[in-house]
Amino acid sequence: MSDEENKFPGENNTGHFWDDDLRELDNEPPAWWTIGFHASWIFVIIYTLLYPSWPMIDTHFKGLLGWTSIDEYHKDMKSIESVRAPYENKLKDLSAAEILADDDLSRYVTASGKVLFGDNCAACHGAGGQGNVGFPVLADDDWLYGGTITDIEASITAGRQGIMPGNAAMLDDAKIDSLAASILDGKVIENPAYTEAGCIGCHGADGKGLSFMGSANLTDGIFRFAASDQLSSIKHTIKFGVNDASNPKSRNAVMPSFGGTKLSDTDIKKLAVYVHKLGGGQ
């Protein structure tokens, strides 16, 4: 920069020179830029007037439109509910069996049931009802308490907790081994120990279990307590039982109740239909 006299008088330069004639001019910014600049601050003022904006000591300016994000959320939810309403209203008055029989409704229920299933059931029974260690598969047709839509609905509403007493005191190891081996083969009813030990009382003469008490089918090769070493798993169950309070090594198998305050009747119906359609409903 130099302090020389302005060599370019009458020009709108700022008086700053470099290298003789390189100088800074004081031009107006382009029109489009000026328009954009003014449009911006006008926009800001209008926007902050319309929408919640300026902070105040203990509150904020609410905006002339009274817009809030939670209102918008509620509005959106209402529009979703208005789409769902015709279905939901029907579901209220129908039984789970009637819903299942209606193609249109059961398709709707399968879609919303998936979410309910994920929230309430999948933790134990797996996302697709494939079961887990200690938790039964819901996609097969082996049901402890019956696989009709009413049975499933009842299981969800009230929960299930079967009892099998431990037999360690009553049966010696040899008998337990032989029983376990014949259960694994699916031919337990041919084993005399089956009747002698009284298994027949709960599991039935055909060994297929009794759905009203939740006793397992011992002949179908599907195991309530599935394990990689199935034989020792069976032995363990015979020895220590299921939910046998007197026996600390007893199996723990409790399906909690979802009725009452946990889930609405409609939600339970939805879940019953959903589970029924997983693959093994009867």
Partner: peptide, 18 residues
């Protein structure tokens, strides 16, 4: 094909796929 479960063992001894 349904991934969860890939297949299911049924009481009859059949394998079921969804």
């Amino acid at each position: 094909h349904e991934r969860q479960p890939l297949f299911v063992q049924m009481s009859s001894g059949d394998i079921q796929n969804k």
